[in-house]
Design a protein around this nucleic acid. Structure first.
Lengths: 345, 345
DNA sequence: TTTTAGCACTCTCGCACTGAGAGTGCTAAC
DNA sequence: GTTAGCACTCTCAGTGCGAGAGTGCTAAAA
């Protein structure tokens, strides 16, 4: 589809754009990357790339900017290469985390903080909480038209309460129905198992025939999500990025992240859907508020069980190579620690 | 100092400015507030008020804007009046919190969220954690040049660990010294008591003669601070305020808040220094990043012991009357709940 | 056939200029 | 002490212009 030369030029354009954050012109590519071609030739190729939807011009006399498709091509190219493990970073992290190997909370707290500091992007990690707790009984009570109360009784006799805000009102009898279904379906499973069951159920019944069952499952999922631990760092740093001289984009990001459910959902899906690295570029994101951003995410594991996810959220024009290598390194590292393996940085 | 008329006009100007966020001119005051005076007279009074430092002009042909001093006058005026308890808010809160009276964490979480939603300012609450835990032994270990580990051993034999980031390196022997001093000084006290002792110690020895003792106390305080619970809401809403078309101010606020220690310190001081309401306007704030903002804060109590603080952070031009009434209502309410009193909204 | 040089064209961006509008300070009259 | 009137000042939005950057196209060169 694209010949070798076009590929090279496309990648050069994306790289250039990532570095300089200005529309990049043919002359610049010719000068900086050479390729033994004149700017005119490169101009022609770039025109072709524009026709194919990889680049676009903000206006006639400006250089070109990669489209989401252009970024996607670039990222796929990176991903297909051998991962460059960032040994320096790993060594630094090892040092920082050495003393708290048994404290996953602190580890994630510090890891996200470090990631944010090192990259200047927003760093988020989720860690499903108390996954092995076995649920004995669930009760649901209506508190008001917009709020319901979940009571989880665990095998050890401890009761956990969660309040959910709901948008469409449900009657107490509906809630009783839902509770009955949930108890029947999930009795005796651990929270982790329930999570997975819910996920399977939700993908299986894409056309949910029974509205109540569908609703029950969704409610339960929400309630379990709020049990997660969530670590967020680097908010203030995003402001420093030249991409966001314009405030409105940041505002949307802040709103999306402050509504923790959105992020939790996103990472949750990641944990059970994809394995390993995932990059979500701009419009590929379901969440409207985040379509001006890109996400580089990775699941980390405990033995073979997916245990949580860690990600970087930055501008579409983020330094993907660096972000991918970092997130990968960090999540591999956490996987190793959780699985009791050692690592020699 | 100010005659009755000048006071009235000053208050009118501040109120006007709070509502419209534009420099307010003499004509506007004359029209809207009357006072049976012409704009020329008001102009003269405003010129006087400017000389006295209550108002200032951004430029010759603009109206006037209150200075911090002007705001302070206005706020003192509000504070000295009978508090208007916001019964509607209280009733709403009572409803929302009815089912979780025994869960302070959830209560504060929801309270801050509600406050943020209702006011569009950033809402923060702190709640010192496990204040009655009695400390048996403290150990301090050096982890690296920038990090040390605190081990608190409680009377029940539980060990709590805290890692602190420090700026100036300390040797292990210095840390041992510090630990020895802390153990000697605070043995057998509860965390709350230690907090108070530390606070007294810090104010007493303003000229800290012994650098090591001073350092020890500060370290210990830091470590205890990180035990606090902190609730923050309403970040994204601040963006909506017309005050902040200019991004840089928000950036500073976000940075200040993301550095949780700053906020915790601020609220901590509040808990032990002032009792009841406190309003901090612009430059009155020690924290540089927050000098473009105002804070309306209140301590809440459990019986007679200060238990935590709750505050609203907004632009200097915030609606103080509303903010004060809300924060006061909310903190009174929480005090009542914590103290086991009932309230009939 | 592919690449290159040259050139006219287009569009943005920063800058200076301008007039309307708002608010002031001052003076003289009430 | 208060008010009306007026000249003055400053901001702000809109306009026009020239420099600069990058393009697309054409014709010549490889």
């Amino acid at each position: 589809m694209l010949d070798e030369r076009a590929k090279k030029i496309l990648i050069a354009v994306v790289e250039s754009y990532i570095q300089r954050l200005d529309p990049v012109g043919s002359r610049h590519i010719a000068k900086k990357y050479g390729f033994d071609l004149s700017s005119a030739t490169i101009r022609n190729v770039m025109a072709d790339l524009e026709e194919l939807g990889y680049l676009f011009q903000p206006h006639t006399s400006a250089g070109r900017i990669p489209t989401d498709r252009g970024f996607r091509f670039y990222v796929n190219n990176i991903l297909s290469n051998e991962p460059k493990i960032n040994t320096l970073l790993i060594r630094e992290l090892t040092r920082r985390l050495e003393d708290i190997r048994d404290n996953i909370e602190l580890m994630l707290e510090r890891t996200t903080k470090s990631l944010a500091t090192l990259t200047h992007y927003v760093s988020v990690a989720s860690h499903p909480f108390e996954g092995n707790t076995i649920i004995k009984k669930i009760e649901i009570k209506k508190l008001s038209s917009s709020q319901i109360l979940f009571n989880f009784e665990t095998a050890e006799g401890i009761t956990k309460r969660r309040i959910l805000d709901i948008s469409t009102p449900l009657s107490q009898s509906e809630l009783n129905e839902a509770a009955r279904y949930i108890n029947l379906r999930f009795f005796g499973y651990s929270i982790n198992e329930i999570r997975e069951l819910i996920f399977k159920e939700m993908t299986r019944e894409k056309v949910m025939c029974d509205a109540l069952i569908s609703k029950s499952i969704r409610l339960c999922r929400e309630a379990l999500l709020t049990e997660d631990m969530l670590f967020i760092h680097g908010f203030s740093q995003v402001f420093e990025l030249p991409d966001f001289f314009n405030i409105s984009k940041i505002r949307e990001l802040v709103r999306a992240i402050e509504d923790k459910h959105l992020i939790l959902n996103l990472l949750d899906e990641l944990i059970y859907k994809s394995n390993g690295m995932k990059v979500i570029i701009g419009n590929e994101n379901q969440i409207k508020e985040m379509q001006d951003f890109s996400i580089v995410a990775s699941t980390y594991y405990e033995k073979d069980r997916p245990a949580g996810a860690i990600c970087l959220i930055g501008p579409k024009r983020m330094d993907y190579a660096k972000a991918i290598s970092m997130v990968r390194s960090v999540s591999d590292f956490i996987t190793d620690v959780l699985s009791g393996r050692c690592r020699h940085g």
